[in-house]
């Protein structure tokens, strides 16, 4: 198991290196000079030269790349071109917001999806199954930013039960924090729940046909014991893959939902950086998100080698 994880880590390195080069070069191709954005509309040539030297923009591109990687390795994420603030500090306040949104959304998705998927599978071809699969199809097709908009209208404007937007830190007001995150987490989570529910249902139906399930039933186990002891553990393997993939979706969806609910997370930061051509910020965020995405994929693979020992060889 440890060897497997180590090998997977080693396999991540070339992808990460490729990715970092791609991101680095791409960001430098963005039209518009950062110096002009930073220094205002009419900077003197001297000011531009001084700025370029300070930001290291006068060096050859490959040297800039190695500088950047070297500093990243030391934990120095660089300085924002537009605000001059430390990117690491900024991320440290914004990352927890996006992380909270992601985790709460995932929680909503799993808590809703897995039980409903199991129920749909047990009641296969019944009216309950039809209702749940139709609901799943509807959820799958709902754009999260529209769902968020509808939730704001009905549960913040028509009935002011939740705030329509903004963020309250957990340390200041735990209840307020959860209230401010409820609608965003529902917007993202319910859409993912549809995907996970569909997978849970079809995966359960696949497993129900297996011989060992018939054996378990034949030896007189109750329905509950068969479901929890035999069906779920085996049916969960593909479900976990989908949950892992949904993390990526939720991360992408955070861009929209943070915009809908005015949450100051990293997605909002990235959008700001795009508009201001602040490429040190942008390249750091892209790389960070990619790294997180890869680590989640790794975690998913590790989880299912744990659940399915047959996958451990190789």
């Amino acid at each position: 198991m440890l060897r497997y994880i180590r090998n997977r880590f080693i396999a991540m390195i070339p992808v990460l290196v490729g990715m970092s080069m791609l991101v680095f070069v791409t960001m430098r191709l963005i039209p518009g000079d950062a110096a002009v954005v930073f220094l205002g509309t009419k900077p003197t040539p001297e000011a531009i030269a001084a700025f370029r030297e300070k930001a290291g923009l006068d060096k050859p591109m490959y040297l800039q790349y190695f500088d950047w990687i070297g500093r990243l390795a030391k934990g120095d994420l660089g300085i924002s071109l537009t605000t001059g603030s430390d990117i690491g500090t900024e991320l440290a306040t914004r990352l927890p917001i996006t992380a909270e949104l992601t985790l709460l959304s995932m929680l909503v998705a799993v808590v809703v999806a897995v039980p409903l998927g199991v129920i749909a599978a047990i009641r296969h071809n019944s009216i309950v199954d039809l209702g749940l699969t139709s609901l799943g199809m509807i959820g799958l097709s709902l754009p999260n930013f529209w769902l968020g908009t509808l939730l704001v209208y009905f549960f913040a404007i028509k009935n002011p039960w939740f705030p329509p937007g903004g963020y309250i830190p957990f340390s200041e007001d735990p209840i307020g924090n959860l209230k401010s995150m409820a609608l965003p987490a529902l917007s993202l989570g319910l859409v993912s729940a549809s995907v996970i529910m569909r997978m849970t249902r079809s995966s359960m139906l696949e497993v129900v046909r297996q011989d060992y399930v018939r054996t378990a039933q034949a030896k007189g186990l109750g329905q509950r014991a068969v479901i929890t002891g035999h069906l779920l553990k085996n049916a969960l393997i593909p479900v976990i893959t989908v949950i892992g993939m949904e993390f990526g979706y939720i991360f992408g969806g955070a861009f929209l939902v943070e915009a809908v609910f005015y949450l100051p997370g990293i997605a909002t930061y990235a959008l700001l950086a795009i508009n201001q051509r602040d490429y040190p910020v942008l390249q750091t965020i892209v790389l960070l998100v990619t790294l997180v995405f890869m680590l989640i994929n790794l975690l998913v693979d590790v989880l299912y080698t744990y659940l399915d020992p047959r996958l451990r060889i190789g």
Binding site: V15, M19, V23, M27, I30, G248, L282, V286, T290
Partner: peptide, 20 residues
């Protein structure tokens, strides 16, 4: 694989940041 490693919407956003 490298293209696939990006979350898809983020990839599109990065491309649009580049192209405008």
């Amino acid at each position: 694989d490298v293209l696939f490693a990006f979350p898809s919407l983020l990839l599109a956003i990065a491309v649009l940041a580049l192209l405008g």
